[in-house]
Simulated assay, not measured.
Amino acid sequence: MLRLAGLIDGLNRGVARVLRWFALAMVLIQFGIVIGRYVFGVNSIWVQESVLYLHAMLFMLAAGYTLLVDKHVRVDIFYAKVTPAARRRIDIAGHLLFLLPSMAALAWWSWPSVRNSWRILEGPISVGGIEAVFLLKSLIPLFCALVALQSLAILARLFANEDAA
């Protein structure tokens, strides 16, 4: 089980390594948009939407990695003041009762929209934009899968540590 958890970690680390470049591309493209618009009077909706697509990919697909490195948002009302054993129980409960059911619900309820978008190859958000909204919507189930897989990897480690303790 821990070997599978390591493979999931590797998957999310690999995704994060690729996505780092998306952040750089997003900044450079946005800089180009500003220079093009205000210096040369040139504007492209397609290029503007490319920043939106990169931003969506960066945040949706990096969520599993963020969970892996424990840099996600955590409400530390009780967590910071309890023992490591209590933290482990809080983490297990959080993953089993909240995170995994949330990812399952989001995947379940978004799937018809994603499926329909692929069925019609849903076009651009704006006239002249990127003709691939179906790809943008596909980020939702990918987000759910990467976060849920990372949650399962964390749970495997939590249960393994509980057995060792």
Rank of each mutant, 00 (worst) to 15 (best):
A80V: 01
A107V: 00
A63K: 06
W118Y: 11
Y65E: 12
G128P: 15
S151R: 12
A63V: 00
Y79M: 10
A104R: 08
L121N: 13
M103Q: 05
G64K: 05
I130D: 12
D70I: 00
A63D: 04
W109P: 15
E122D: 08
K81A: 13
D70G: 09
R115N: 10
L152M: 13
I92V: 14
L68C: 09
I90Y: 01
L155E: 09
C144Y: 02
L155K: 10
F78M: 08
S113C: 09
L67Q: 10
V114C: 12
P141E: 08
A156I: 06
P101D: 03
K137I: 01
A93E: 04
R89I: 02
A153R: 10
S102E: 00
A145P: 15
K71M: 04
V114W: 08
A93R: 03
T83I: 01
A93G: 06
I140D: 14
P101N: 07
F98Q: 09
L142G: 14
R88E: 03
I154Q: 12
H72R: 02
R74Y: 04
A63I: 01
I77H: 07
I130E: 11
N161M: 05
A132P: 13
A148R: 11
I140F: 13
L155H: 09
M103D: 03
L135D: 09
A148F: 05
P141L: 08
I125C: 13
A85I: 01
P112G: 12
V75R: 06
S110M: 05
S126M: 06
T66H: 11
N161C: 04
E122A: 07
R119L: 15
V114P: 15
P101F: 02
E131W: 06
M103E: 03
I77D: 08
E162G: 11
S102L: 00
I77R: 09
A145V: 05
P112Q: 11
V75Y: 02
R89T: 05
D76P: 00
K137H: 05
A107P: 07
P112Y: 07
A153Q: 10
F159G: 15
V127I: 02
Y79T: 01
V73D: 11
E122P: 07
A160N: 12
Q150C: 13
L136Y: 12
L100T: 00
G64M: 04
A160S: 14
N161H: 05
G94R: 04
H72Q: 02
V73L: 14
A145S: 14
R89D: 13
V75F: 01
R119D: 15
A148W: 04
L139V: 00
R119I: 12
G94E: 04
I130Y: 12
S110G: 09
S126Y: 03
L152V: 00
L121C: 13
S138D: 11
A104T: 00
P141Y: 06
D70P: 05
R115V: 02
E162D: 12
R74S: 10
L135V: 03
V127T: 03
A86S: 08
A148Y: 05
T83D: 07
L136S: 13
S126G: 07
G64N: 06
V69T: 10
I130C: 14
K81S: 14
A145I: 03
A62V: 01
Y79F: 08
F134Q: 12
L149V: 03
L99I: 00
I120A: 14
S110P: 07
L136Q: 13
K81F: 07
A86M: 08
P84T: 02
I77Y: 07
A153M: 09
R115C: 10
